[in-house]
């Protein structure tokens, strides 16, 4: 790259059921930070059918260009089709960075896209650090107890970025030019059979002002009754982390996290939850967070306004007594 030529930065703008995902503006915020060093052209790429409105929305956020890749093979998501469609377009742009949201699509195609671009794949990123020699990325590891510092060694890199990790860019600008490309993809051997609601999410949970969420620290199923009692006593909605739903102790519609509900209650009691990103993505916007976990190193404590380091079942008993004593 010569000093004069602006570097291309590409933001992959994903859509959920036709609407621009919040991650698009977050990745744009990160792109602007990465672009801070020198001249750069930030472009957004969308893939899919029926996304013109989402593309136009993206075009109003102060970008150099918005590229919409369309084609009958791109109506539903599949990794192989997306990599096929994206590779020639991104090769032509030769971007220094391709930012991909680490959602159910991005985590699926980013690694293979990096191979086809001969670029490093790095992520999922939740922080950026300025170091000698340029930016370094912070990626959670060890159940969230550590952040690995990483930097690509290739000229271009595909970076997958955790949704919610960076503030959304709020800048607006004149409508960027929208380029629509129709791309024929061939993915023999792969057929879409549609999408279903799955387990969905409980409306009561999403709207709750108080949530008491339990995790593996609950220990035994028998202890669930106690958590239910305390939830009732606190007028809180009972929820859980994914492992508890996998165990069948709670329904999947009561799950908080990346594959469940995102909640922002006034009070969130995280009981026996370690605080892996998959869970905290769904609750970190809560008003007041109380973490109860016997492991003082558990990452949930980093998110908490108040921490209790205790064995959960014993603490639940004491909490029930304290709660009943003055009600």
């Amino acid at each position: 790259m010569s000093a004069q030529a602006p570097a291309n930065l590409v933001v992959m703008a994903h859509a959920v059921q036709g609407a621009l995902a919040p991650s698009a503006a977050e990745l744009l915020g990160l792109a602007r930070r990465l672009a801070g060093q020198g001249p750069a052209a930030i472009k957004a790429v969308l893939v899919g059918q029926g996304l013109e409105a989402a593309a136009r929305e993206m075009a109003g956020l102060g970008l150099a260009e918005v590229i919409l890749l369309e084609g009958p093979g791109l109506a539903a998501y599949s990794g192989p089709a997306w990599v096929q469609a994206l590779t020639p377009v991104l090769e032509a742009l030769a971007p220094a960075w391709v930012l991909v949201p680490h959602d159910s699509q991005g985590q699926d195609y980013a690694p293979v896209l990096s191979l086809s671009l001969d670029a490093a794949c790095l992520g999922p990123v939740e922080g950026l650090e300025d170091m000698d020699g340029g930016p370094a990325f912070l990626c959670p590891g060890q159940g969230g107890k550590a952040l690995y510092v990483q930097r690509p060694l290739t000229a271009g890199a595909v970076i997958s970025v955790l949704p919610g990790a960076f503030p959304a860019s709020e800048a607006k600008g004149p409508a960027a030019p929208l380029t629509r490309l129709t791309i024929a993809t061939q993915t023999p051997g792969l057929r879409h059979l549609g999408e279903t609601e799955g387990h969905g999410q409980s409306r009561e949970l999403v709207q709750a002002q108080r949530v008491l969420a339990v995790g593996r620290g609950l220990g035994k199923r028998e202890n669930l009754a106690q958590a239910q009692e305390l939830a009732a006593c606190l007028d809180a909605c009972l929820a859980g982390s994914r492992p508890l739903c996998d165990l069948g102790w709670l329904g999947y519609d009561q799950q908080v996290g990346q594959t469940g509900a995102t909640v922002t209650p006034r009070l969130y009691l995280a009981c026996g939850i370690s605080g892996a990103r998959q869970h905290t993505l769904g609750m970190r916007g809560s008003g007041f967070i109380v973490a109860i976990n016997h492991d003082p190193q558990a990452p949930i404590h980093d998110l908490a306004d108040l921490s209790v380091v205790a064995d959960l079942p014993s603490f639940l008993r004491e909490m029930l007594e304290a709660c009943r004593a003055k009600t």
């Binding site: 959920v16 539903a76 998501y77 599949s78 959602d103 159910s104 792969l190 057929r191 879409h192 059979l193 549609g194 999408e195 279903t196 609601e197 799955g198 387990h199 969905g200 999410q201 999947y252 519609d253 799950q255 990346q258 594959t259 469940g260 509900a261």
Partner: peptide, 8 residues
């Protein structure tokens, strides 16, 4: 996302 399922 949001518990939805894609069949392939």
């Amino acid at each position: 996302e949001a518990g939805r399922r894609q069949a392939l």
